[in-house]
Design a protein around this nucleic acid. Sequence first.
DNA 1: ATGAAAGCGCTAACAA
DNA 2: TTGTTAGCGCTTTCAT
Lengths: 350, 350
Amino acid sequence: MTSTDGAGRTRPVTITDIARVTGVVPSTVSRALNKPGRVSAATRARIQAAARELNYVPNSQARALISGRTGTIAVLVSDVTNPFYFGLIRGAQQRLKAAGYAQLLIDTEDSGAHEAEMLHKMRRSLDGAILTASRLPERELATLAGQIPLVTVNRNVRGVQSVVIDTPTGIGLAVEHLVGLGHRDIVYVAGPDNSWSNHARWRAMCTAGLRRGRRFRRVGPFPRGRGSGAAVADAVLTSGATACVCFNDLFAIGMLPRLRQRGVRVPEDLSVVGCDDIFGADFSHPPLTTLAAPIQQAGEVAVSMLLARLEHPTTEQTRPAVILPATLTVRESTGPAPTSAAPQPEYGAD
Amino acid sequence: MTSTDGAGRTRPVTITDIARVTGVVPSTVSRALNKPGRVSAATRARIQAAARELNYVPNSQARALISGRTGTIAVLVSDVTNPFYFGLIRGAQQRLKAAGYAQLLIDTEDSGAHEAEMLHKMRRSLDGAILTASRLPERELATLAGQIPLVTVNRNVRGVQSVVIDTPTGIGLAVEHLVGLGHRDIVYVAGPDNSWSNHARWRAMCTAGLRRGRRFRRVGPFPRGRGSGAAVADAVLTSGATACVCFNDLFAIGMLPRLRQRGVRVPEDLSVVGCDDIFGADFSHPPLTTLAAPIQQAGEVAVSMLLARLEHPTTEQTRPAVILPATLTVRESTGPAPTSAAPQPEYGAD
DNA sequence: ATGAAAGCGCTAACAA
DNA sequence: TTGTTAGCGCTTTCAT
């Protein structure tokens, strides 16, 4: 694995070492290792044996310096601790590993500026990047896409390949479910304004409402994260709605203890729908009805699109965008609307 | 950011471009940018201005080729989707970013072979690595530590810097809590045999038992993951114990639905203690009493130890191991032992 | 204070 | 089929 130099310190094995041992020149070693067809069987065997024996590992920096390919793909997420990304990261990781790429995980801390800065700085060390929930303005994103192969997830910008979840249909399913249960007054709990998904979901709510001649309201926006749960619960209660659709499961899960504390039963008094079907949505109390997105698949598809482009740069991109279906997972946080005759539960003073 | 060559294609800006523009030689540019003190104020200003104007970004591959430093630290986890790692990854990420390093996240899929292979292949592209829950045998780990700066988390091997959670004290706390509640028959639910933490926890259980003149039993081992929940629940029930300490929260959370389904009330009929206090442990039904480890801090400390070594290679390492205290977070999954007079609940046939 | 030159490890023309 | 040469972008002697 290492050879010993005069000082007794170890030094990584290079093709020059192998060349010396096998009595050929470095470029021959390079060929033997990379384009085995262009070297005689005998020398190839000798060289490969020596390489194995010395435990040679190519220096990817040196290789990258010439080829410009680093074998590294960045995956940018807005917050590594958001369980939403687990599946995505895993899906991406699996495909990348299978293709021999490394995954550089970057937490943008929910800031477009961070995002741009990191991408810019690392541009040269990356073969491409997957942007989940990008906070960048469209123009900047399009510019960036011209400099480094990019695939976005849940963000649709003209000229940038993307994987998006079919929010309109998904939200439609959720609304239909709630309306079917007799809910007439449904409120959307908005997430941060800089979230594309948040806007997509609210827009879909409006559309779904329009189709039924209703106008749904919204409360918020609330800051990302479970910490908003109490405020969300209070806002929904104040709104007087009998059901809410939350920007994400973190909000929905965060609401539950506050609702319980206030004596509001879920789903008897209030139906709650989340989005994303994150880890925990199935064992919260009660388990959450939620819009499930095939997020691991999104990670896989995003990587596939990116690698396809990297490895067949000539081929025209047939699919600028892949749309993945969302499904509604019905659990126990939604139920029939309380009959309007029944008195509203009394909420104790805060 | 890019200069245009004859063909109209853009090409990254190099120090040579800056040199041409400012009328100096590339090495002067290099100096101006890296050792500002060794260049006249005037030229330095000119060069820095030009660099900014051209939006120059250093090529880290080229730099790494010479210096051997890549500015990248690998963080190896056995399973990216295990919520246990969220805090760890985030803690590491924060410290790394603050120090200007990039985090390469590697999923070893719970395999020591994978782990060794990845580390070996990427050895040259890394400045160091953090191994969480390493599956490698001690010897191999020690060897590896000689080749690449390493810090382990939750794995203590002589000669390798490590961050470990104080399992004995933590488990002691849990046992004390249960014994205080009147439990005499406590069973440990074992995780995978290749987990160092699993052994540490079981050993700590034995010690804690010995101190009280008791011998606790164990069931398992069970395969990692929430999927084992049903089997775990059945095994614990069969054991007849009134309380169990689970290898991790995933097991504990996984047990709950099965127990409910079998009519076993938690904590009235059975007390359940988890380990790790992962995301979800506070909103499971019932919320979990669990051994909370400052895992984000573990990530931070591991990075700090690693970077300290990288940046002050001469200084002797004062602390080969950092031990972080575990605390017991008492929630609602533990309660007084059922009085032995009371009839055991009947478990319906499966 | 700046320039000239060499070289990190590897690959890719081009020659032989 | 193999060797020779040059160069990727940068840093680092060594001169000047």
